[in-house]
Design a protein around this nucleic acid. Sequence first.
DNA 1: CCATCTATGTACTAACTGGTACGTTAGTTA
DNA 2: TAACTAACGTACCAGTTAGTACATAGATGG
Lengths: 215, 215
Amino acid sequence: MPAVPPLSPGRRRDAERTRAELIEMATDEFAERGYSGARVDEIANRTRTTKRMIYYYFGGKEQLYLAVLERAYAEIRAAERAVDVDHLDPVAALRRLAEVTFDHHEAHPAFIKLVGVENAQHARHMRHVAGLVDLNSSAVALLDGVLERGRRDGLFRSGVDALDVHMLISSFCFFRVANRHTFGALFDRDLLDPDRRVHYRTMLGDLVTGYLREV
Amino acid sequence: MPAVPPLSPGRRRDAERTRAELIEMATDEFAERGYSGARVDEIANRTRTTKRMIYYYFGGKEQLYLAVLERAYAEIRAAERAVDVDHLDPVAALRRLAEVTFDHHEAHPAFIKLVGVENAQHARHMRHVAGLVDLNSSAVALLDGVLERGRRDGLFRSGVDALDVHMLISSFCFFRVANRHTFGALFDRDLLDPDRRVHYRTMLGDLVTGYLREV
DNA sequence: CCATCTATGTACTAACTGGTACGTTAGTTA
DNA sequence: TAACTAACGTACCAGTTAGTACATAGATGG
């Protein structure tokens, strides 16, 4: 008789699965209702386990929230690493980076909401998540390399800070996702309408490259 | 004996003052803690009156929040009306409009937070505040007039939507205020540092006029 | 100065909510 | 297969919080 797989799919007790399921559902709940609005009971009810397990694995609501933040940023890390801009000319590379951010924001609304939740709390929790600073700094370093290449080639003007460009890209992408509801209510325009997606994606590229171009 | 002023400043019972004070403090509390995070008791404690008055004047937490939202937008309405761009050339007018938005965002962080709170709730309450749509539409109409003038003078390229320009301006200003905490934590840069204020204000003007310029 | 209504304060309650005490079962190992 | 431990579930508690019943004092008109 061959040994059954060590972790069968119908397994009753599976620490990893329970943990992952809690984080998954907690992500939605925290993103949807904010930190204090999120209900521990509701998170548990969405899973196949009980509230008790939140305290067993994480210790409490706050630590669960921290775990959610950590995983959300870890996912972005993975996505950003996939970008390879070295074989593109500076202008195309800049556009590519902006587009990756654009796509990422659109594909991860829950993450965007978590960023909003964190800011509402003055980023108090985020400071406790190790490695975040290094991660994001490297993203800016990548951008800085592209700008440097562009300056050398005489394509970009000098005196432009990479972090400012990153901020510009982020602000455009963030606003489109985060504020779509008030914007829609005030101007009757859905910023996430698929028919306008290409338009805004191109607009962002035009903005960024336009800002870098020599006058 | 002359009659004392009908509404003396030290007046014990003053419905208007009590109402206004409640809205004032509720604005801070809702902006700081979000809708569900805000505590009715805390709002009352910040005023010279009691929680009872919230129910007496507004009916409940939700209606108080609505009153807060309404007043916040009414204040902006007044500020935006003060802008007079007709005597400026299109490029200068465009910069001026962007700067007014920039300044307004910086001066009203509580309002920015309320916008975030509203988006977190899918703008559910905002739809019930009458007159908001007209107000904001007129702001875009103003912008549209400037763009039209610029096109006629051959200064701006055609095919640019006023609402898109408005979105660009808003996104830049909004992000700088709303996300300063996470941005500061991740990149160790305070976006609201007074020393960088002029830089970002100019950057926004460059961005907008650059986007409109013919290539 | 009296009658009346508006504005206000106090003291509650019912429901909610994060957290926990305690018992039980599944998987593992000797 | 017995003993042991990690994983899990139930039932509950204590603190909090939006909302309210009720009493009362200030303003106002006659």
